[in-house]
Each structure stands twice: as structure tokens, then as C-alpha cells.
Nucleic acid binder design. Sequence first.
DNA 1: CGCTGGTTTGAAGGTCGTCAAGAAGGGTGG
DNA 2: CCACCCTTCTTGACGACCTTCAAACCAGCG
Lengths: 240, 240
Amino acid sequence: MTTQPLARKLQRFVDLTAEELAIVQQLESTVVNVDRHAELIAEGEPKQQCFVILDGWATCYKQLPDGRRQVINFMIAGDFLGLRSLLLRISDHSVTALTDLRVSRFSAAELRHIMKEHPRIATAILWALSRDEAIVVEHLVDIGRRNAMERLGHFILELGERLASAGLADEAGYDCPLRQEDFADALGLTAIHVNRSFRQLRERRLADLNKRRMTIHDRTTLAELAQFTDTYLEPGSLSS
Amino acid sequence: MTTQPLARKLQRFVDLTAEELAIVQQLESTVVNVDRHAELIAEGEPKQQCFVILDGWATCYKQLPDGRRQVINFMIAGDFLGLRSLLLRISDHSVTALTDLRVSRFSAAELRHIMKEHPRIATAILWALSRDEAIVVEHLVDIGRRNAMERLGHFILELGERLASAGLADEAGYDCPLRQEDFADALGLTAIHVNRSFRQLRERRLADLNKRRMTIHDRTTLAELAQFTDTYLEPGSLSS
DNA sequence: CGCTGGTTTGAAGGTCGTCAAGAAGGGTGG
DNA sequence: CCACCCTTCTTGACGACCTTCAAACCAGCG
């Protein structure tokens, strides 16, 4: 539970000066507490706000008219919410709190000002957005071209890497509030089939989710099975 | 076949002044011809270039080690290639020409300069990128939560809307160089099942692909079947 | 005319979804 | 402390959707 998850995240990409750090911290300063299940952003609504998660998990999803749900991504400490909708007339997705949540709110104007006055911070933020998009793209490959067990394995490892770089995981695993139904809605499966896939991973002694704790027993074999590589999550060197 | 597809596209979002228009046209001025099947961007390679498509189709995809392929999106006139990889150390996807292609190449430095000096153009470009991401997200929903026929129908309509706003489609349909295997790789299906889904759409007199020509017979019913809404493609009003 | 790339169709099998019901927790109130 | 919820997890049987394999067909082109 770092105090400034956004600063920490951007630091991975650019070495911020003390002054720049102070600017970033402004974005994290307007703390708002949000209850579990509350909706932060509603699909179809105009004029949305922007947030950074300070602590807790949120889920970003779209819903079809007939009730089917597809989660785009789960968001953790340091992640932005609602940035993509900034330039679309109405938000194309919803975001709700998966756990009790601490977020910081900021306005589009604030963000624009920073982007204009502090190019290095701007670059770091754009990097963070590129990475978010790379995650969605990898997610697409996951659903489109992997079978249930591979999908689940890949997703478990990806979450692990993201949490690790936020300081929220260790070698053995991580705390994870997701229910099997959440995995199902993320992976394009049914909760029942997610359960079966978890069982397979458990029987092969690769990974296990128990009492909100994800344990990764054999990262190497799991990565091989799921064809997981973490290049799309890496910071990458600043090119100018 | 508009002469300046990028300018046309950005105009939909911001009313560009004559001066701004000239700036945008710079991006479209370094014309390069690319042969069908040629690779413009290679997954895993660092130091990529940026392009805008002037004419023709390209496909943006990821490949798994075992050969399975997932296309992220098909790109048409006015679309950017390689922008997302700008800030990632190495490109997370490949792009190859689906048809003979006319593109314009520009450097990251050029783009940075424009983003800095011309905030309205910058906003328009960021809108275009947001829209691209919204398309990928909708694609995710498509694959995750729709069955084969719905998927295909949705995809056909989406392509139609995109081509229409590029001036490349009419009420009846559009020219489309995609093979059934391309659809399959985009929709997370096999070419054979795409064929069967096309047959269903044909038998229901909803849509038909014949000799590289997509004909949409009953847009309304098709949109209903596929639960298609075009809000995520709309320009949206400029909010400041 | 035969080759090539793409489309079409059939039959059989596997992965995943649906339906149904039981087990395991965790929280609440008696 | 136990009874009773509720939510979540777990398992089984069955069927649907989609894949795999195999082969025929078709159009364009050298």
C-alpha cells in the first residue's frame, strides 16, 4: 500500500525531478473514498471525471443490452480511470469499484495544464496509456486465440506482473478480490468453466486461488503453458 | 479515394483552419508505396516508424509462438500505423499490407513538434487514437460475448461505418479485400466457421460478401441481430 | 489447360455452455 | 454459540457451438 502509486508508476518510466514529482502528487491529492460496488463511470453518460486509483480494485467493462457483460480490464493502484473517454462525447464503458476504494479525482483542465507545461510528465502519462492499451490488445489475443486454461493462466500471470510493479505482490503470489465470475466476464467464459480451468491449474500444481489469495506454484511452467511474455508490460527506455 | 484522408478524418472532429490544414497535410506528404503482403511494422522490433494510410488496407495483428494469429484491427485510409508503439520500447504488434498500399511516413519528432505547437491538431489526433482504442475495446466485447454470426454481423457493420466516414462506402455496401481467413483471425474463429456464418447471413438476406464486394441487404435487422450501435465511432463534440 | 488461392460442404469430435444441485464459507441475529 | 441466511465455489450430466479433417468446387491466371 504505497502512498503515491501514480508517482511510483510514472517513476518506472521517467526519472522525475523533485519539482515534477510535486506536480504528479497534485493529481493524487484529491482523495475520495468509494464503496464497493459503487459506479465511478457510467457507459453512455457524457461529461465524465478522471480518477487515479490510490488503493483497491476497480473493474472496467461494457454491457450488452441483453445483460451479457465483458470486462475490459481490472484496475489497481496507480491506474487511471476514465482518461480514454475524455475525448469521446460519451463514455464507451463503465467502471465500478470491486473493493472499497480510495481514488483521487482530477479535472480534464488540470490534466491538460500538466500535459502542456511538463512534457516529461506528459510523456510518462502517455506511456502509461500506451501500456494500458497494450494490455487490452494482449487481452484480445487471450480471448481470441487461447483456450480456457491458457487464457486463465495468462491472465493470472499478467495480473501478477502488474501487481508486482505496483509493489502489491511477492514471489509466491498476491491478494486478489476477484470472484470466478469476474474472471469469467474478463475471459469470455462462464464462471463454471473458469472453475474447471482453475481445477486443472491446481491439479497440475501451477497456480491456485484460495480465500482471496492467488498462489503461483510454478511460474515457469505456467508461463510456458500460457505462452506468456511480459514484454508488453515493460517500461522501455525513454527514446528522447 | 480522397486525396487527404487524414485531414478529412480530423476535420470530422475539429474544424481546422487553413494554417492547421497545411500542417496536417505535411504528415500526409511523404508518400511511400508498399506492396501487398509487405511488412510495415514488425512485432518485437525496436525503433519503429509511423505511417498514415493514404489508400489501401493494412492489418494489425499479433502472432503466438505456435503460429496462431489474432488480428487487432484492419486499417484503412486515414488511419495511423505504429503510433501506439511510439512509447513502448519494442512494438507489441505487427502491421502488414493487405492490398497494395499508399502510405505517408513521418517521424516521432515531427509528431511531437505538432503536438506541442498546435494544440487543436493534437486534440484531434488524440481523439483519433481514442476512437481506435474504442474500436479495439468493442472488438473485445465482440469476441468475448457474441456468437459467430453476431460477431461477423457486428464486424461487417463496424467496417461499413468506418469506410463510410472515410468516403469509401455507400448505402448498399463497400469494397472489401478481406478473405474469410482474415475475418477468422479477427473474430477468433476458423475460416470454415466464418464461411458458415456468412452463409447464415446470406440465407437470412442480411449481408453478403461476393467478389470482394460486401453488400448489406438489411442494415436494420443486421444491427439488431448483432446488437450494433455506432456511438463508439462518432466524433463527439469538442468539449474545450 | 492445369495450377493456385480461395470458397464451400460434410462428418465427426472436443471444448465450452447450460441446467441442476450440493458443499463451503462468512455474516447476522437469536 | 448455534441456526440460518447469503454468496461463492464445486461437481455432474447433457447438449450446443465451434473446430478439425477431408474433399470437392470455383475463378483467375500463367
